[in-house]
Design a protein around this nucleic acid. Structure first.
Lengths: 152, 152
DNA sequence: GGTGAAAACTCGCACTT
DNA sequence: AAGTGCGAGTTTTCACC
């Protein structure tokens, strides 16, 4: 499962714009349309390309408030951890959740409309999950960079 | 700039899988192919749909180590802030960078191969940026949830 | 990896509600 | 203002070289 220079270039291009046609890609890569097609299929089959998605502008759908929440659990038995992770993953406001090293157990990225909606989220959804010890929230002032593209 | 139930459904579907054809979408939405086409074009024109991308599995491209870095600047004059943000945004290992409230100024999400690569990144890239006061890094133990899809 | 052709899809047009 | 059906031109997909 190794990829050559052309594969890397292809992955880079598709991470930037997945709507490029195989013909356009074939021009950029100096390959035939079929060769591009086969390479993409291979990358998909190998699971390197996970999926294709539309990215939407959060501000345009009335979700401009981003918060990062550190969470510490009161207990760390298998049961509680699994339950917590499952419940958090089901919250639509939680875009990302990571189990991390350090003073807190988890780091969450939460997206809502505004501070009022965040308060609502904290009171009614997040802290209603059992066994949450302490939380510490930070608010996004400005998004300096946010990319889904991994350099290869 | 309001969207109805069908638009919301459409946005949800395209955030899950942007490779769905207009025909497939038209079946799901009980619309004609052209109607779907027109709605998508409108969402693109309005900037609600920002772009279409391929998401790749980071583990498959040898990038399995995720770190979150808190950064505090020594100075906060316009000049230094702008320069810092520009330099950080240019680092390929930095996938996300947010100016945040709290004890630290910035929160970065960094993706590299392993701990050794992270050390390399810290020593040679991040801390070589001027006017960084202190940093505090946390390491991802497990990715519980990570989605690009915003609920609408 | 390339060629060529069939099948499927996109997208503008004319027309309807 | 938004939807439908049609059809030419592209794009995708695949058997074969």
């Amino acid at each position: 499962m190794q990829f050559d220079f052309i594969d890397k270039k292809l992955i880079t291009l598709l991470q930037q714009d997945s709507k490029k046609t195989n013909k356009e890609l074939s021009n950029t890569l100096n390959l035939s349309v079929t060769a591009v097609y086969e390479r993409i299929k291979k990358l998909e089959k190998q699971g390197i390309i996970d999926k294709y998605v539309a990215l939407i502008k959060k501000e345009k759908v009335n979700k401009s408030f981003v918060a990062f929440c550190h969470i510490k659990l009161t207990q760390h038995t298998q049961n509680y951890v699994v339950k917590f992770e499952k419940e958090v993953a089901n919250l639509e406001e939680v875009l990302e959740c990571y189990h991390i090293s350090g003073d807190y157990d988890y780091l969450l990225k939460v997206l809502v409309k505004d501070m009022a909606a965040f308060r609502e989220f904290m009171v009614n959804k997040l802290t209603s999950i059992n066994h949450i010890g302490s939380t510490h929230s930070m608010f996004m002032i400005n998004e300096v960079k946010h990319t889904t593209a991994i350099s290869v």
